[in-house]
Design a protein around this nucleic acid. Structure first.
Lengths: 196, 196
DNA sequence: AATGAACTTGGACGCTCGTCCAAGCAAGAG
DNA sequence: CTCTTGCTTGGACGAGCGTCCAAGTTCATT
């Protein structure tokens, strides 16, 4: 796992894993029947980690009396997204690894040998769920209603965050990413109306 | 190049390239001093192709008397983005390759041996320029003014498209992508005001 | 025709990879 | 004590990789 983050998914070899774990070659093949299975396990672990990290960031939204209405919604969304920032900025290698895993999963989707279980699809399904839960919680606390299905809004928001983070990985413009996140908050908040 | 699209950047070996080109091993090393140089050349070619494809799609916007104002701007943006759709849907493998190249460029950025010239950065710089040019042209035709620097808007729009396309590669939900593109048009159009 | 530079060939080298296996080791069950 | 079972070792194997090179071919210039 550490190897994958630091040196890329292409550098994850059976030998490297064995050395990092402090065991001999054979043990790796005793635990994982093949390298494919090893990568699948790593992918699932990463997805789990990612999803949990999102849940933790979004878990900070709590009921409060002064967070009602569209202004309150903006505040809530801003808190949630801001909570993700330190994690992202602090682990650029892991963010990159996420994209690598996604790309690899897409590439080997056809030739997937029973294992692997469509990591890419699983990843986005989990992130969808976290985002939907977060948006629903925000709407409830702020006492507003989404004008369009919350699933669509989650899709849009995730795509935006995805693109913004990838862009940040390239140019490392922290201010630009923060500005884009703020804009994301505005875009999403514009898709709600206050309850009558 | 065909190999990279069909089987992934990891499958681009000197031998595979030689076989596809119908030449022997040594020729490849006669043309490219090392594999690194070969990959850099492929990356640059891809970036060129991508940029040209964007320019072609955006080139369709032309002056017209009924495209004035914010409504006209929306129409223009919609035309430009819609023009990209057939290319994207028709070449999913190439889209995936783009993300693979970006990831690989980011991974090998530190250990880049003089060649490679920061493919990832170059890629986004070119796309930025195309997007900025497009947005500026749209604003001029529609006789509107961007409320924020056009560079920021281009960044946001590109990030959104980037995330949406990546998402489409995963779930292949064509309708979802179209809906997201429409939403992109609305988000961007909201950042302009009609000229006094 | 002779020369030299540009290009091509096919194979060899050393390396790393995933996979496999015979043998060794620890420890609970009989 | 003696099996048996679960786990570990270190090495071997073949395949594929990037790189390199001596020899062969082509072809415009002299």
């Amino acid at each position: 796992m550490t190897i994958a983050e630091q040196r890329g998914v292409a550098s994850v070899t059976v030998r490297a894993v064995a050395e990092e774990a402090g065991v001999s070659l054979g043990v790796v093949h005793y635990c994982f029947e093949s390298k494919e299975e090893l990568l699948a396990a790593m992918g699932e672990s990463l997805v789990q980690q990612l999803s949990e990290s999102m849940r933790q960031a979004f878990g900070e939204v709590k009921h409060a009396p002064d967070l009602r209405g569209l202004a309150g919604l903006q505040e809530l969304l801003h808190i949630g997204l801001s909570q993700m920032l330190p994690t992202i900025v602090g682990t650029p290698d892991r963010q990159l690894l996420t994209y690598e895993i996604t790309a690899q999963a897409l590439r080997h989707r056809a030739s997937a040998g029973e294992h692997s279980a469509d990591i890419a699809g699983q990843q986005y399904r989990k992130m969808d769920n976290e985002a939907i839960e977060f948006l629903s919680a925000c709407a409830e606390i702020a006492e507003v209603r989404w004008k369009t299905p919350v699933e669509e809004i989650a899709r849009l928001g995730l795509a935006l965050v995805d693109g913004v983070v990838l862009r940040w990985l390239v140019d490392r413009d922290r201010e630009g990413m923060i500005a884009a996140f703020d804009e994301t908050v505005r875009v999403i908040a514009a898709k709600a109306v206050e309850l009558p």
